[in-house]
Design a protein around this nucleic acid. Structure first.
Lengths: 189, 189
DNA sequence: CGCTATACATAGCAGCGTCATGCATCGATG
DNA sequence: CATCGATGCATGACGCTGCTATGTATAGCG
């Protein structure tokens, strides 16, 4: 129903299933509980998608690939992605939003340990900033404030800028990000 | 009602005003029209707030100050800010979202023309990226995915990184952003 | 002064989430 | 094997939502 942009109503949900609305109350405790489960599922799928991005020898390229996969996930299920962030802190498992984030942190840490980023660069901070950049860009596109082309136009540049700020050399970061972004481009073709 | 986190319902809206629900239909055409007007008002207020940031001699400092004012506006009225981006493209005046954006573009253009940014740097692109960074950070905080401290911790760093990528020298950008951010800090004190 | 068009109060409708009630069904217990 | 308690859920109803058909004032204009 989310994918078809239909309004998600309790009655429409159970129609055709042979079940009644009470089943939803038994299993989810009500509509807010159902949405909580939906958000949970959204973060689970996001984590799954990010985990398909292989960790290669170039951690900066991996960061860009993770960013591309993240944005691609948002674009593939816009309604689900927006629902996830209606109340990102209210999940069945409160730590579920952490899993996708950890993937980013891990790559940032590898970049630092491998000498690409400065020794004093904080992997959590770098990951948070890349997350915020991707989320902001994705949200602006999903809400219609920016055209979809903005993703390809700005996301790689933002990731590059953040990696350079973390200590990578400009030319090298640009090359790695280009490669990583191309490997998991959000827009097909 | 938005500020008090009360659910915005037609009946609660007219209660106590002496008017009936029909008045809303006369003036706004229904609930979606009312929300459209609310979003419009949100963008108008945002533009007003950004216009209070004076254009000083340091355009990079101005960019940071605009970013701080933008985030402060979001934090001052979280519900309004979120409502604005429920459908940022559906406004009474479709160009209303452009006004705040233009303020950013103007500062980026001044930075380029004044030699702070590279001659080939695109002010619209720089402004879009700063916007996306601020929006992403603000949204993650408003939805509870990040703590409020994340704003001070990451927003200045992101703006700096984007300005450096646009051509500014690292140390100089950092100093300007620090000054601009402090001038219009989102979190009081 | 009278006519028309606009503004809105009233009352009611369909659809929503929710829950009290009651009926099955299943697993444990004697 | 029979019985009893607990669980799962279908039924129906309740209050609230946005919406609108109807009727009535009121304001503006010839």
């Amino acid at each position: 129903m989310l994918a078809r942009r239909e309004p998600v109503t309790l009655r429409a949900l159970v129609e055709g299933t042979g079940a009644s609305t009470m089943a939803v109350y038994t299993h989810f405790g009500g509509m807010p509980g159902l949405w909580r489960a939906v958000r949970q599922e959204g973060f689970t799928r996001l984590a799954a998608r990010l985990s398909t991005v292989p960790a290669g020898s170039d951690p900066v390229q991996d960061l860009a690939a993770l960013g591309a996969a993240y944005v691609a996930n948002a674009l593939a299920g816009p309604a689900l992605y927006r629902a996830m962030f209606d109340a990102a802190a209210d999940l069945e498992d409160p730590g579920a939003a952490e899993a996708p984030f950890r993937t980013l942190v891990a790559s940032a840490a590898r970049a630092r340990d491998g000498g690409r980023f400065a020794g004093e660069s904080d992997p959590e901070a770098v990951a948070t900033r890349i997350w915020a950049a991707g989320h902001g860009l994705a949200m602006l596109v999903l809400t219609g404030a920016l055209p979809v082309e903005a993703l390809d136009a700005h996301a790689p540049a933002m990731v590059t800028a953040l990696c350079v700020a973390a200590g990578d050399r400009e030319e090298r970061a640009a090359r790695s990000v280009r490669a990583g972004w191309a490997a998991a481009r959000p827009l097909g073709a």
